[in-house]
């Protein structure tokens, strides 16, 4: 194996993800604004410039039982999430680790989800319990033994959310696996032919069903509207990331953007058969990367349209929606057999 190529490809993919992730945040906001009949912020403002601005603010110690761990969570998660992107690139397929399987990718996705629970339990924002206001006074109701912060409630909801709302995306990931009869990313990609002779899984019936279910799972993974109960603005303000400020908030924004990019890239790899190849030696290689990046724009654009029209679904609606799409996913799996 050529180590130079390996390093170059990893670095280039990282840079692409770090650049386009924040841009996606802006695109999402811009499309929503257009649906809302207003001009909206410039595309770079909600993502890229906000992140740079937060990095230029003065660091501070957050209200948290473990401040350094709390601040370390977003960078750690970004690296972990990037591993998914690296694993889908051809340079990593041949590694003796044989991690480039969809089972490993699902495991890493679980890690990302659990991070929010940790975030929620480590944060102590002043917006709820510690707000200086005399509400616990003589004569006030004193029933509960625990006064819980918004973030605590958010952590509880994230656990429920992980349990319920991640079914669709896992089912959808395994539809290409069943079609290609292999859990290796390599086999799923090669099954769909080379770049110049593509037969994307998306254009088969089970693949299309899978793509729809993947889209719903994607929104649920991003905790975007309407699957935003774990950090519902109506009652929890922002939930787990409430206490991130200055550079840590910049990192958190990057995490959100990169997660958006990586899941979108995984979709392109699995359903279009175009992996993130870094090969500057030929026109085909370059156009493959460009094509890959262009196709990753598809899911965020669709998400922003859906989220502009979706209210927060409470668990009452979340159970039927999630189980309904899981059932559709299972139907797609059966079709693929």
């Amino acid at each position: 194996m050529d180590y130079v190529n390996f390093i170059i490809s990893t670095v280039v993919l990282t840079v692409v993800a770090l650049f386009f992730g924040p841009v996606f945040l802006g695109i999402e906001r811009k499309i929503q604004a257009r649906i809302q009949q207003r001009i909206g912020p410039p595309i770079l403002t909600p993502g890229t410039w906000s992140i740079l601005k937060f990095w230029n603010k003065k660091p501070f110690t957050p209200n948290s039982p473990m401040p350094s761990l709390y601040h370390a969570l977003p960078p750690v998660t970004i690296v972990v999430v990037l591993v998914i992107l690296w694993l889908t690139s051809p340079e990593w397929w041949g590694l003796p680790l044989s991690l480039a399987t969809l089972v490993a990718i699902v495991g890493i996705m679980k890690f990302e989800e659990v991070m929010y629970v940790v975030m929620g339990s480590l944060s102590r924002s002043i917006l709820s319990v510690t707000m200086p206001y005399g509400d616990v006074v003589k004569g006030a109701v004193t029933k509960a033994t625990i006064r819980r912060f918004f973030e605590g409630q958010s952590a509880v909801r994230f656990i429920k959310h992980i349990t319920i709302a991640s079914f669709p995306i896992y089912i959808a990931i395994f539809i290409p696996v069943v079609i290609a009869r292999s859990i290796f990313v390599q086999d799923v990609v090669l099954y769909q032919g080379s770049f110049l002779d593509l037969h994307p899984i998306l254009f088969t019936v089970p693949g299309f069903v899978g793509a729809i279910v993947y889209f719903v799972g994607y929104v649920a993974q991003l905790n975007d509207y309407p699957f935003t109960i774990a950090k519902a603005k109506g009652d929890l303000v922002e939930g787990a990331p409430l206490e991130y400020g200055a550079h840590a908030r910049g990192n958190y924004y990057i995490l959100r953007g990169v997660w958006m990019f990586v899941l979108s890239s995984l979709f392109v790899t699995l359903f279009f058969g175009i992996p993130p190849v870094v090969d500057f030696s030929s026109m085909v290689g370059v156009s493959q990367l460009v094509m890959h990046v262009l196709l990753t724009f598809m899911l965020p654009v669709l998400v922003s349209v859906l989220s502009a029209f979706g209210p927060i679904l409470t668990f009452k609606q979340l159970y039927p929606v999630s189980f309904g799409f899981t059932a559709i996913g299972v139907f797609g799996l059966l079709l693929a057999l």
Binding site: S128, M131, D135, K143, T145, I146, R147, R148, F150, D235
Partner: peptide, 8 residues
């Protein structure tokens, strides 16, 4: 009740 959430 076992948990209290103050809002505001």
């Amino acid at each position: 009740a076992d948990v209290e959430i103050p809002v505001g």
